[in-house]
Every structure is written in structure tokens, then in C-alpha cells.
Design a protein around this nucleic acid. Structure first.
Length: 557
DNA sequence: CACGGGTGCGCG
DNA sequence: AAAGCGCGCACCCGTG
């Protein structure tokens, strides 16, 4: 059963549909009664259909109401609109409408400090009927050749939207005291606003002294570069890895300065003030925020939390963190996509890269890793490029799959993930460059530029099939895990039983009562295996996950 | 002064 | 150890 919700002003329309999509009940509810309505109806486990999870769910969560399933029409629309699997549908062939323009939710005040905010439906969208859109999507899916794939994708994407709201609601348990201690240890005591911490001040003096530039601002790359060249250092950029190669007394303090300066500006006291409230980090997750279907975040840099501050992520007393990481996810995804049985064998029961070494393809684990990454990213030079022929000989099917995705992209074609997310078409300037180069009047420069852009786009599509399919696996993993966690503590509200608090592409953290931590770890492993079956059926590719039960994030691996 | 591109670096 | 995918964010600096 589905219940379609449609807000207009102070009321909400609720339309109940049976499994054939026929209306069985229709009513109008005062917006104030929505929470009670949902709470009651949730007992029947409907799939809630709404335009945008972020516009509906936070208020329900705040009122203690959790829903088990939904259709996020916004997210689903983007997938169905773009997918090659549904390309013949009315929805895909229609002119752009309100569901296409639909809003990057623009600035909402006080977004950062509350989980309770909601977005108002704006004018254009108020007229877009969720029921019509839901039917258009259902028709598009039902009519396509392999409805199972895209149906699973839409369910997983929508589950991800629920999880994102729930994770923000619960928040990542975060110790201000530990983070502050780390900052103080490295930088010195917190300075007054605008002042430089003692450690940075000291390093600045050393740098200026070593470069004989008493007013140098090392934060300015052009200025720094000139100063380095003045003392005879042949740097071409100020990147750390390049500076590391140089020999001069300035290098050590300079590298240290860059490191600490980065810590201060990205995750310093200001970040702590802005993002950690009541011992919780609540980043704004954006499901589907990346073309490949990965999540993005807005504000707080939640997906770039540096490894060396992770000790500040601390379980509450009596609770544990279950930190889980999918091992070599993308190569395993490629294994499943290509049906490469040799690579599946290499990944069976062990580290995939070690398995590649054991197969005799390469000599050491580091080589296996760099060769695999190079194959998936399109490296042509360096060690990775040199190892590719050996990889190809050992695993021809896997390598062929990414090569074909690259060739398709170079021709300007679309590629599609395992469950049906399709890559965008190249833009007008790309097409123009190709057509100029193939014209009769083209110059060598035109052709070089077109070839280079074609290869760039080929690297994008090469990686797209893997990264997008990996993102789908991760969504299925989390959705399955969420269900299992609910079973472990059926009546608990979010935050009372084990619940997801963090997601980082191929890694999750569950905050769990200590008594349920071990069973949570089992759920993590079982969900990973289930996700593998959902994507690849009986094909014997394994998806091992490490699940560590710890008190703080730094203790994991 | 606002804005956007460039640089550099954090994450997978 | 570096160059090849996807991001977000802080900062600098040139432009309008």
C-alpha cells in the first residue's frame, strides 16, 4: 500500500492507493494533525510517497515518529528521467517540468543548528501533483525491460533519504573536550578571535626567517612560490608533496605550518563552535548529491573528517560505536559487474589485492592496488600504466568492462550502472569541440583538444559505472542494515536503539547500546552479503566488511 | 564589496 | 612515491 502526501497551505492531502495503484481512500488533514495521522497509519507499513523527504521527515522524527518506507519523488524522478532503462517512457520523453527544475533547497536560516527545520514548498512545486508524478514513475518502471533493477534502485535511493534524515536527527556523538584537547596539544591554547595560535606564530617566524622574507604570507601560493625561488628552490608549485622533495631549512617548518594551518581552518575551534551542538555533529547530508549517486554534504565537511581527529567521535556511556568498512569495495563491484570469475576467485575469503598477488598477476599488494585503481580511474602513465597489461592478462573480463565504458564515453555515449543510474550526456562545449575537430576545416590544435576532452570524458564514464554501482551497493547495504537494526530494538525511537550515525561511501558507523553491539556487528556483515545478492544475484563475488566494536572512531582499524 | 576561478588539501 | 575518478571547503586574487 502507498499513501501519497501532498501539502497545500495549512492542509495535507493523503491519498491511499492499493497495490494496483487504485485510490482506496482520500482525505484532507489539517497540517497540525499530520504527525498523528502518520503515526497511526504507519502501523500498516505503507510506503509513504512524498515530493522530498527533507521537507517531511524531520518534523516527524522530532515528534518521535519513524517511518519504515517511502518514495522520494524528487530523487526518483532524477533517476527515471536520466536512466537508459526508462528512456522510452512518457516521463523521460516529456518536456522539462517542475520535477526537473526542482529546487536545490536554497538557504534556510538556522539550518545548521536544528534538526527540526523544514522547507516550504515553493510556488512552482505546489502545483506539481505528487500523485500524477508517482503514477508517471510507476508506469515508466513497469514498462521497462528490467523493472527489477530500477525498482530496487528507487527503493534504495528513497531508503537512503530516510537514513540521511535519521542520521542528522540522531547526530554523530562527538566530544568537544577531546577535540579541543587535540587542538590545544598541536596548536597551543585557543587564541582570541582572529589571532594566530602560538604554534603557527612560531612556525611563521621560522619560515620568514629561513626565507629572509619578514612579511611573507605563506597562505598566498604566488607569494610563497616567489620567496622559495628567491632562495634558489626550483619549486613549480607550493603543494606539500612537491615541497617534500626539496632540501632547505624552510621545508620542515613550512610543511608543518601547512598541516597545522589546514587543521585550524578546516576543523579548528570555529568548526567546533559551528557544528558540534550538545555533543552531536549533525552534518547536512545530500543523498544523490553526486552524479554517480554518492551522497554529498553541505557544510561541516562531514565526508572529509580528517583521520587524526576521529578520536573525538566517542560513544555515549554504556554505548559502543560499531565501525564498519567494506573491504576493496570498488574492485569487488567491478568483479560483479563484469562477471569476472578469476577476480571473484582472487577475492574469495581474503583481501582482494593479496588474492591478485596470489594469482601471480603482480608481485606485491601495493602493485595490485595501484593497478586496480589505475584501471578504474583510467591511468595511462606511471607504475599503474605499466602494470595494466599484466592485470588485463589475468582478468580480461574486468578490464574489458571499464575499457568499454571508457570508449563509450569517448564517443559521447551514456553509460549505466548496475541498477540503472545513467551518466549525464556531455555538455554543449564538449560536443562543439568534437564537431569542430571532425569538420573539414579543423586544425591540429582542434583535433588535439577534442581528443583530450574525449579521453577526459572517457575516464569519467569509465569510473562512473564502478562508482555509481558501488554507491548502489552501499545504499542497499545501509537499507538492509537499517531494517535489521529496527528488528534488534523494535519499539525504540531513533536514538534509543542501535542506529546509524555516519556514512562515508563504503563505511558506516552505528551507535549501539553496548548490550546490542555484537549483534549489530553481525547485522552489518549480514547486510553486506545481502546487498551483494541484491546486485549480483548468485554470482559468487564476496563483500567482506570489517566491523569493529569500539568506544571511539580512532580505535577502529 | 561581491563573486567566481584557481589553488591546495581533506575524504572515499 | 605519483596521476587517473568523484567530492567540499577555506583561502587568495583578479575582475566588475
Amino acid at each position: 500500500m502507498h499513501i501519497v502526501l501532498d501539502r497545500s497551505g495549512a492542509t495535507v492531502g493523503a491519498i491511499r492507493l492499493d497495490d494496483a495503484g487504485a485510490v482506496i481512500d482520500e482525505r484532507t488533514i489539517p497540517a497540525d494533525d499530520l504527525v498523528d495521522f502518520v503515526r497511526t497509519a504507519e502501523a500498516e507499513s505503507p510506503r509513504w510517497v512524498w515530493n522530498d523527504t527533507r521537507a517531511w521527515y524531520p518534523r516527524l522524527l522530532a515528534a518521535g515518529v519513524r517511518v519504515s518506507r517511502c518514495v522520494d519523488l524528487q530523487l526518483s524522478h532524477r533517476i527515471v528521467r536520466m536512466s537508459t532503462l526508462t528512456a522510452e517512457s512518457d516521463l523521460a520523453r516529456a518536456l522539462p517540468g517542475p520535477w526537473d527544475t526542482a529546487p536545490e533547497l536554497d538557504e534556510e536560516p538556522e539550518r545548521r543548528h536544528t534538526a527540526l527545520f523544514e522547507f516550504e514548498v515553493d510556488g512552482a512545486e505546489a502545483h506539481a501533483s505528487p500523485l500524477d508524478e508517482f503514477r508517471a514513475q510507476s508506469n515508466a518502471v513497469a514498462a521497462c525491460a528490467e523493472p527489477g533493477r530500477i525498482r530496487l534502485l528507487l527503493a534504495a535511493e528513497s531508503a537512503g533519504a530516510l537514513i540521511a534524515s535519521e542520521m542528522r536527527f540522531a547526530g554523530l556523538p562527538y566530544s568537544v573536550a577531546r577535540h579541543d584537547a587535540l587542538l590545544t596539544g598541536l596548536l597551543g591554547p585557543r587564541p582570541l578571535a582572529g589571532a594566530r595560535p602560538a604554534a603557527l606564530e612560531q612556525l611563521l617566524l621560522e619560515i620568514r626567517d629561513a626565507l629572509e622574507s619578514p612579511t611573507l604570507n605563506p597562505d598566498s601560493p604566488p607569494e610563497l612560490l616567489r620567496a622559495l625561488q628567491r632562495v634558489g628552490l626550483m619549486a613549480t608549485s607550493t603543494r606539500s608533496w612537491e615541497l617534500r622533495e626539496l632540501e632547505h631549512t624552510v621545508i620542515e617548518p613550512l610543511l608543518q605550518y601547512k598541516k597545522l594551518s589546514r587543521l585550524l581552518t578546516a576543523n579548528g575551534w570555529a568548526w567546533l563552535d559551528a557544528w558540534i551542538v550538545d555533543g552531536r555533529f549533525r552534518p547536512d547530508y545530500v543523498p544523490g548529491g553526486v552524479v554517480t549517486g554518492r551522497w554529498a554534504t553541505r557544510g561541516g565537511g562531514a565526508l572529509q573528517l580528517p583521520r587524526h581527529v576521529r578520536g573525538a567521535v566517542v560513544a555515549d556511556p554504556g554505548w559502543k560505536l560499531v565501525v564498519a568498512d567494506a573491504a576493496q569495495l570498488e574492485p569487488r563491484i567491478l568483479t560483479g559487474l563484469s562477471g569476472d570469475t578469476a577476480m571473484a576467485e582472487a577475492g574469495r575469503g581474503k583481501d582482494l589485492y593479496e588474492g591478485i598477488v596470489a594469482s601471480g598477476a603482480v608481485d606485491e599488494r601495493a602493485h595490485a592496488k595501484v593497478a586496480m585503481l589505475g584501471a578504474m580511474y583510467g591511468a595511462t602513465t606511471g607504475e599503474s600504466g605499466r602494470l595494466l597489461p599484466r592485470l588485463t592478462r589475468a582478468f580480461p573480463r574486468a578490464v574489458r568492462l571499464v575499457e568499454e565504458a571508457a570508449r563509450a564515453g569517448e564517443r559521447g555515449e551514456i553509460v549505466t550502472s548496475r541498477l540503472g543510474r545513467s551518466s549525464p550526456k556531455p555538455g554543449p562545449s564538449w560536443l562543439a569541440a568534437q564537431s569542430v575537430a571532425s569538420g573539414a576545416e579543423s586544425t591540429d590544435a582542434d583535433e588535439r583538444r577534442a581528443r583530450s576532452q574525449a579521453r577526459d570524458w572517457g575516464r569519467f564514464t569509465r569510473n562512473f559505472v564502478v562508482q555509481a554501482s558501488a554507491a548502489e551497493w552501499a545504499l542497499c547495504w545501509m537499507a538492509g542494515l537499517r531494517n535489521r537494526l529496527t528488528e534488534l530494538a523494535p519499539s525504540a525511537r531513533i536514538g534509543e536503539g542501535p542506529h546509524l550515525v555516519y556514512f562515508l561511501h563504503d563505511e558506516v558507523i552505528v551507535h549501539a547500546p553496548a548490550s546490542l553491539a555484537e549483534r549489530t556487528a553481525e547485522a552489518v556483515v549480514d547486510s553486506a552479503a545481502e546487498a551483494g545478492r541484491l546486485l549480483f544475484g548468485g554470482f559468487p563475488v564476496e563483500f567482506p566488511v570489517t566491523a569493529a566494536v569500539v568506544d571511539d572512531y580512532a580505535q577502529a582499524k
